[in-house]
Design a protein around this nucleic acid. Structure first.
Lengths: 145, 145
DNA sequence: GTTCCTGCAAAAGCTTTGCAGAAGA
DNA sequence: TCTTCTGCAAAGCTTTTGCAGGAAC
């Protein structure tokens, strides 16, 4: 868990209520897990981790929940690697993502301002996604040792 | 085919030679197909289209070829939709992509300058991918009618 | 009681792998 | 001849769908 942006269950529960979604135990667990990780997890990572706490949690429920939360705009789907969707908490200031080629973790990054300025006229843009790839600080320092 | 950026087989063949790849008929067909489409195709689209011309072309060969060309940096893999990789000709000036939510086609866009300026220190960035989503001009005008 | 949530089982879709025969240098 | 290329078949992975029992309102 990352303390700097920790969102407690009450707050997440409220967010769900406001979107007309029942904050069931499973849903709360999924949303909380995504909200409080820095490196945006995939469905499989969510399932594997949460099954420690909720052994009866099924893969179907994780997928159902992710769809429900994404449809309600509480989560954002990141299309980073083909065949492996990752999830990010949605109601946040816009930011970009950095994918480490070595450890595959995904980090948040600030987004340069004025991104959609220089684009082709005639296209109606409603969202922007920016991905950086490279080596994260942890992997750089491991390499040096 | 888009005439404005048409690359003929001789030129593509040269590019392959320079990368140490034998320009077989199948490989040339795949590379040419990707190079001369504006809306970056997926493996399945490539296979379906090319089978009209080369009925014996197999799915495996398309995947093999795409891997070979991507490893040689002649093609770039676009992670746009989960579970469906798209391909773009690589040795081109950097540009971004626009994905139409209605027709799913992918268009090139200019890229704003100085993109990697405002990023977190400590990360070693080696590539940048920028995706816009929205409605393309064609779909906008269809909607108006 | 009616709606929503959950999970098993099965299927679907994209991609990868193993292997053997064919083609090219 | 020896390496590389090709394609069938099978498997692997992530995700989706159908359906039925259970929980919540």
């Amino acid at each position: 868990m990352d303390d700097d942006r920790f969102l407690d269950d009450n707050r997440l529960s409220d967010m769900m209520h406001r979107c007309g979604i029942r904050p069931s135990v499973n849903r709360l667990a999924v949303l909380s897990f995504v909200a409080n990780r820095r490196t945006h997890p995939s469905a499989d990572e969510i399932l594997t981790e949460l099954q420690n706490k909720f052994p009866s949690l099924s893969r179907t429920t994780v997928y159902n929940t992710l769809h429900t939360l994404a449809a309600a705009k509480l989560l954002r789907e990141l299309e980073i690697e083909s065949g492996n969707r990752h999830y990010d908490l949605a109601p946040q200031p816009q930011h970009s993502h950095f994918i480490c080629r070595r450890c595959s973790r995904i980090f948040d990054m600030p987004i340069p301002e004025n991104l959609s300025g220089n684009t082709t006229p005639g296209f109606m843009i409603d969202s922007v996604e920016l991905y950086f790839k490279g080596i994260c600080p942890d992997c750089i320092s491991i390499k040096k040792q």
